Computed example of a mutant assay.
Amino acid sequence: MKPYENIAELIANLESEIQAINAEITTLKTEPQSFNEQVVFKYIETGSTGKTKDFVRSLGVKSERGSLFSSGDVSKLIKAGSEDISPDLLDIARKITNMKNKNGKQRQ
């Protein structure tokens, strides 16, 4: 933790973190509203584009190109987003991607 000017600043910071975590929990409790959201939820659950790709393939869904869904398609969906995906859900998925990029294959 970084040093704070006073206890009030620390409390305000911690309360802000609690609000952010509660917002993420609310987002994750929401049922997927589209197929793309279902894909993003699976990525958040597994932390793996490969496992997410396997999930999509098991459903028989093909990519926009008409070929089998790939890990790259999952990455592209998370990076570019889509109109039918909640921005809050995308933020969570992108945080996972950033954690993986900073920590290698380890997910914390």
Rank of each mutant, 00 (worst) to 15 (best):
T97M: 12
A93I: 02
Q38S: 15
L59T: 02
G60R: 03
S16H: 13
S71N: 13
K53C: 12
S86H: 01
I7F: 06
A20P: 00
T27W: 06
K102M: 09
E17Q: 15
V40H: 05
A23T: 10
D54L: 12
V40F: 01
L68G: 14
G81D: 08
L14G: 00
K2E: 11
N103V: 01
Q33E: 13
S75E: 07
A23F: 05
A93W: 04
I11M: 08
L59K: 12
P3L: 09
Q19M: 08
L59G: 01
R57I: 11
T46W: 02
A93K: 05
E9N: 10
A8T: 13
L77H: 06
E15Y: 11
N6A: 06
N101K: 15
Q33F: 02
K105H: 10
P87S: 04
V61A: 04
K102T: 10
T52D: 11
A20C: 00
K76M: 11
T49A: 12
I44F: 04
S48F: 05
L14R: 13
A80V: 03
L10Q: 12
G72T: 10
P3E: 14
S34V: 03
L28T: 12
D88F: 02
G81E: 08
I92W: 06
E64M: 12
I96E: 06
R57M: 03
V39G: 08
G72C: 00
K42E: 14
V56H: 07
T46M: 06
Y4P: 00
S86M: 01
I92C: 08
Q19L: 14
I11L: 13
P3H: 09
K42F: 00
S70Y: 10
V61W: 03
S71L: 00
E5C: 01
A23I: 01
P32S: 11
D73Q: 10
T30S: 13
G66D: 07
T30R: 15
T97K: 14
L77E: 06
K76I: 01
N22C: 03
I44E: 09
E24Y: 08
V39D: 11
Q33N: 10
K29W: 01
Q33W: 02
E17H: 11
Y4M: 07
I21P: 03
E45Q: 15
L59Y: 02
S75F: 03
G66P: 09
S16N: 15
L14H: 02
D91K: 15
